[in-house]
Design a protein around this nucleic acid. Structure first.
Lengths: 155, 155
DNA sequence: CCTGAAAAGTTGACAACCTGAACCTTTCAT
DNA sequence: ATGAAAGGTTCAGGTTGTCAACTTTTCAGG
């Protein structure tokens, strides 16, 4: 327990493994991001619109909470929800408890589109096909551990 | 080549593990994306600019190749390189072999900024800190396998 | 009850990103 | 020599994103 003046708090040099994992992650992130955008575009949605729609799978949500979850300004959400609403994917309803807040809810069309997109993602994941079932389990556990501490988008 | 409707080609129902891995991936992608944008913004770069700059670590590159690597239209790259150039991060030089092509090269300032950002990413990866060294190795191997078949950005 | 601060959402101005079509220059095959 | 094709740029238009100012609603004190 004694304090070696070294490692614990001090940001040590990233070891070789960490460095490579970061690079691999970057590539994987780029790949997934592209696939997500494409899958959304195939349903004439943008990535941002798809993300908002995905959030609403859990149920209606106030604008502000959407903004917080996506880490952006509330004024940004206004525009995205405007476009989703004008196409019938989403509705704005006033909250009865607090009339300042507007609850955004996915319509049936919206939910369907979101689910469809999600399914298409599951199929499109070519990279995952390279792994066996047991390896997928290992990967899942590692990812779980990595995300446990981080501030996930509540999903 | 006769087509037997074998299992290999048919997209089977995604199993539970795959589904969860995809969701975890989505969260991880969102997390990394946010961190990358923030790290870039801290150096007064946008995400897109940082990505282009990162590509140039390997050496000068034609506009078109940048566009192909990032999967976007060449006309888009024009603007991004414009802004990078106007701030001294990058230069455009004509290729001697083919005078149609313009080689984009990072300046010393540009390379320094990119390296610095890369280092800061290595340190900032909180999620990775949750894993032990041996687990990181396992993760690295799995990621390598996943990316082996995919069209990586040449990095 | 009244007043003022704070919160939720919107609006407007502005910048960056991205696409698609039209265009110019250079290269290359015939 | 001529025409097609490739590399970049420009322009118009749409989406995302920030920031500041504004409206409405809520809530805490006096």
């Amino acid at each position: 327990m004694d304090t070696q003046p070294t490692a614990a708090a001090t940001p040590q040099q990233p070891d070789e493994i960490t460095r490579e994992v970061v690079d691999l992650m970057a590539n994987l992130v780029a790949l997934f991001h592209r696939e997500y955008e494409d899958a959304a575009a195939a349903r004439s949605l943008t990535g941002a619109q798809a993300k908002v729609l995905a959030l609403l799978r859990r149920g209606p949500m106030p604008m502000r909470q959407i903004a917080q979850t996506l880490s952006c300004e509330p004024s940004n959400i206004t525009g995205i929800v405007d476009r989703l609403e004008s196409r019938g994917f989403v509705t704005r309803e006033a909250d009865r408890q607090d009339r300042r807040v507007k609850l955004v809810a996915a319509t049936d069309t919206g939910t369907a589109a979101s689910e469809e997109l999600r399914e298409s993602l599951n199929f499109a994941r070519e990279p995952l096909a390279a792994l066996g079932p047991d390896e997928r389990t290992v990967l899942r556990d590692l990812l779980r551990r990595m995300l446990a501490g981080a501030s996930g988008p509540g999903a």
